[in-house]
């Protein structure tokens, strides 16, 4: 999704987020990712200045000290940046794809169900409804390589096992990963 993303062409404005809005935002983030409650004040400290960067295609980047923390399209659910997931890997819903899926993901493809259900992959027992934002890990790797959104529920991924299971929002090496906000 960030194939052609550049700071020069795609960033339209930067605005400081008011502290009252910042508080509301933190509440929303914790609602979406309940585990974050424990670390939200660490990620967005009370005294920290959050900046919202508005970009092409109604994309907002929530940044602090020139690092993207979360992104949001329109008023869709928040998506944590990969570097944030790397810092807090256990605070988001997650799946693990098989090794074969890695190179497809890194070339910008969405994740097909078989990449999630094969022997090398691993999925949690619980269901993730459609639209759940998930961190994507890979067989044999410790760090996440992408963040995506369930295109079908996780139960359906297991049952139907066909078509796109997860839409990839951002992956290591894409335009957002290499974005320099300085």
């Amino acid at each position: 999704m960030f194939k052609k993303f550049t700071a020069k062409e795609d960033i339209h404005s930067r605005t400081n987020v008011k502290s009252s809005v910042q508080r509301g935002l933190k509440t929303k983030l914790v609602n979406q990712f309940p585990k974050l409650e424990e670390v939200i004040d660490e990620i967005i400290p009370k005294k920290g200045q959050l900046i919202v960067v508005k970009c092409t295609d109604r994309l907002s980047l929530y940044t602090m000290e020139n690092e993207v923390l979360f992104l949001q399209r329109f008023d869709d659910p928040f998506i944590p940046s990969l570097r944030l997931v790397h810092k807090y890997p256990t605070y988001f819903p997650s799946v693990k794809v098989d090794r074969g899926a890695i190179k497809f993901i890194l070339s910008g493809a969405n994740i097909m169900c078989p990449g999630l259900t094969s022997k090398g992959a691993s999925l949690p027992e619980e269901n993730y409804p459609v639209g759940t934002v998930v961190a994507i890990f890979a067989e044999g790797k410790d760090t996440a390589l992408a963040v995506g959104k369930m295109a079908m529920s996780l139960d359906d991924v297991k049952k139907v096992n066909k078509g796109i299971g997860i839409e990839v929002e951002t992956h290591i090496g894409d335009g957002l990963w290499s974005l320099d906000l300085d």
């Binding site: 790397h86 890695i102 890194l106 790797k141 760090t143 390589l145 290591i172 090496g173 990963w177 290499s178």
Partner: peptide
């Protein structure tokens, strides 16, 4: 390549 080193093989 800026990737976590375990992903360098894909760059």
């Amino acid at each position: 390549c800026t990737f976590p080193p375990e992903y360098c093989e894909f760059g």
